[in-house]
Amino acid sequence: MKARRVLQPIWFSSVLLPFLNRRVKDRFVGGAFFLITILPFAILLVVIVSLILRTQPILSAHSIGELLTGQKWYPLKGQFGFFPFIAGTFWVTFMALILAVPPCLLSAIYLSEYCRPRISAVAKPLLDLLAGIPSVVYGVWGMVAIVPLVQVFSSHVNKWLGFIPLFSKNNPTGYSILSGGIVLAVMITPFIIAVTCEVLRTVPDGTRLASLALGATKWQTIKYVVLPQTRSGIFAGVVFGASRALGETMAVLMVVGNVAKVPSSIFDPAYPLPALIANNYGEMMSIPLYDAALLGAALVLLIIVLFFNLISTIALRHIIGRSKI
């Protein structure tokens, strides 16, 4: 009896407890990590579901098609057409991509293929620094530097190319798609360069050397060997940049004019979805359906951005899968 009482604790603490402890700890830690990992997905789900629920009132008053294609936005009259905002979002994003993508690709190629290692060792952290600048700073810069420039520039362009609708000036100010596009282009540049550099690095050096050993020039090697192999990854980088541009709010809102009309010229003002939501949510909420309409706009924006992120993820998956072969 006595022996057993002494024995039991020893047996328990030295054999069973540590054993249980490890098992329990392991399961606990595994479970915690699992919960933490699924948390973002859970939050996304909650956001989507609550947006859908809060959008219900307007969906029962108007059809989805009517909302998405409606051109008129007069909340007081109960008219809620999202189309000008969707169009504005894409105009500004597209403008930014046109301005940003060519120079970004060239500088990524330069940084990862041409320049001395020492230069890229300095340039890449600098780019990360650019990525960290708050967007309101870019917005202020756009207002004081870009908008006045665009105002002057647009008058000149209008004189020569005004007969083309895309370049006609219907707006005396510089607050326009072009201004928004320029500011956005500068903002997404570090991301596109960084992704492209990473993608170019997936090409093994041996492959480049094989081409050079055959007497190819550096440019031939890049054009025929490096770029074809990384096409989908570079595409993913561009789409990634686009999805950042689509959701960017503050800087764009400050320079793009915010007029709820479908634009037809790069000098027209626009009113992208994020600006609409940020400018209006919380004000005049007594207007019927206004709250539901703005949350509907948020839902549309969310779906667009998720869609772009999905494309970019799939394209990246494609290149990573291939470089492992």
Binding site: P204, G206, L209, A210, S211, L212, A213, L214, Y224
Partner: peptide
Amino acid sequence: RKKAGLLAQHPFPL
């Protein structure tokens, strides 16, 4: 390099 071709240790097909 056209005159002196190289066969490396590991093959790197293009």
